[in-house]
Design a protein around this nucleic acid. Structure first.
Lengths: 121, 121
DNA sequence: CGCTTGACCTGGAGTTACTCCAGGCTGGTA
DNA sequence: TACCAGCCTGGAGTAACTCCAGGTCAAGCG
């Protein structure tokens, strides 16, 4: 499939896909006779996975280390495991922050509410 | 108090504080006879609040709109309310994404686990 | 066949939100 | 007097995209 559909399916923007290929986050994508990229189902799967990590703010350096490890074809998954585990911890921390901020906002909003609450019910 | 302590108390880095003042996110901070910034408790309170919003990814444009509204001294809080409410919605959405990614990571980690679990039990 | 349109290409500039750095001033201390 | 920490400014650098100009190619139309 071509880049537009690849973008729709993976969730990465067209520009981001080209950018990721440029910096080596994706292995070189195959090209058709016309010189345009042709994505395989495997490419899409990998890009979708990257999108998950990216959306939750994994630094590119970590994503690249992960990518390199996967593409190296090594059976030693300890590095990938470590990267994911670290990110898992970061996410848990971030979720706590986020929840705290939600409570803070709810408090703030309730303070402002009296002037807004015509629709409050 | 001076900038180092202001940074420690608000959670904003020294550079970020100066940057925020430069772009108008903070009202001009008072200066001592030596030309250095002196922060009041009110400054700190405001900076701490900004740090909450910032840490959860509110765009600077929104933060500035919020700041301008607060500093304008207007009693009409509808804009602030709208900004906070919007951010509240974004956070809820982000938390759902984050939780989904946590589940995804847990799944991934469990797949890698068999090769790593010497220290698991 | 020539023309236009749309999807794609590349290299490079622009954006956001900081972060770091060089070079310089000041107040207190040995 | 010399030195140092802590502060100052303007400006360059960074991360992670995002946008843009200018160009190619295949398909459809008259």
């Amino acid at each position: 499939m071509r880049i537009a559909e690849a973008s729709a399916q993976s969730g990465l923007s067209i520009d981001t896909i080209r950018y990721y290929e440029k910096i080596g986050m994706l292995q070189p994508i195959g090209r058709g006779a016309d010189g345009q990229r042709r994505f395989t189902a495997e490419d899409i799967q990998w890009m979708t996975q990257l999108n998950w990590l990216r959306q939750t703010g994994m630094p590119q350096a970590d994503m690249r280390a992960f990518a390199v490890s996967v593409h190296s074809g090594t059976t030693d998954t300890s590095e990938r495991y470590a990267i994911l585990l670290r990110h898992r911890t970061v996410l848990a921390q971030r979720r706590r922050e986020l929840e705290a901020c939600e409570r803070y906002l709810d408090h703030k909003l309730s303070v402002y509410a009296p002037q807004q609450e015509k629709t409050h019910g």
